[in-house]
């Protein structure tokens, strides 16, 4: 594992911690999309099925379990916590997730490495992760004002993806015969999804202003 990959994973972990702390400390999930959080739970469950049949490293196993547990903890807060669930913008968070899930699943059936249940589900999780942030970005666009923590959460999620891109470039030049097209193409799409957000985030940061999205 190279430094870019580790930095990417740590940024991913930090983004989740920031979101959990925001929810716990402010007892509010205003501006957070439950649809996106549920999509991430689907992504982790379908991708980490290999926890049951293969062992890669202790690091790998522990991180997978952390991602699964934190995803369900966030969902629990947003759905079940007495105070937090009342702050959820249900009326604004209306993205039709089936428009993401169905095409990703069909694509996973058509383009994969192996026609087995676990491999198709793993491929599905790669495709779905690429677009899972969309309900969150749409919610942000609707509510316009972005609070600092939600902004930082999304910025870190985007940074994690950018670091993974660098990790792949590094691996390409250091590992003989290393290539993984499905992951590369999806990962590039996923990183591009954040470009617009990055632009406004950096602009707000440079002007020392609160982040706002155009209407």
């Amino acid at each position: 594992m190279n430094i870019f990959r580790l930095a990417g994973d740590m940024t991913h972990l930090l983004s989740i911690i920031v979101l959990l702390l925001k929810i716990q400390a402010t007892k509010s999930c205003a501006g957070v999309s439950l649809k996106t959080q549920e999509l991430y739970a689907v992504v982790f469950v379908t991708r980490y099925l290999d926890l049951f049949y293969s062992f890669i490293s202790l690091y790998n196993t522990v991180m997978k379990i952390i991602f699964l547990l934190t995803a369900f903890t966030i969902i629990w807060y947003m759905r079940k916590h007495k105070v937090v669930c009342q702050t959820y913008d249900k009326e604004q968070d209306t993205f039709r997730v089936l428009f993401l899930i169905v095409p990703c699943f069909v694509l996973a059936l058509l383009v994969n490495h192996e026609m087995s249940v676990t491999e198709v589900l793993w491929t599905f999780s790669i495709y779905l992760e690429a677009v899972a942030i969309l309900p969150q970005l749409v919610l942000l666009q609707r509510t316009k004002n972005v609070d600092n923590l939600t902004g930082n959460y999304i910025f870190m999620l985007g940074s994690y993806r950018a670091l993974y891109l660098v990790n792949w470039v590094y691996r390409y030049f250091t590992e003989l015969g290393y290539r993984q097209w499905i992951v590369w193409v999806s990962g590039t799409v996923q990183t591009c999804v954040y470009l617009d957000f990055f632009y406004y985030y950096v602009q707000a940061w440079r002007n020392n202003e609160r982040m706002k999205l155009p209407g």
């Binding site: 293969s54 790998n60 490495h113």
Partner: peptide, 10 residues
């Protein structure tokens, strides 16, 4: 081995 490589990433 390719598949194993891919599954190593989170």
């Amino acid at each position: 081995e390719e598949a194993e490589d891919e599954h190593d990433e989170l």
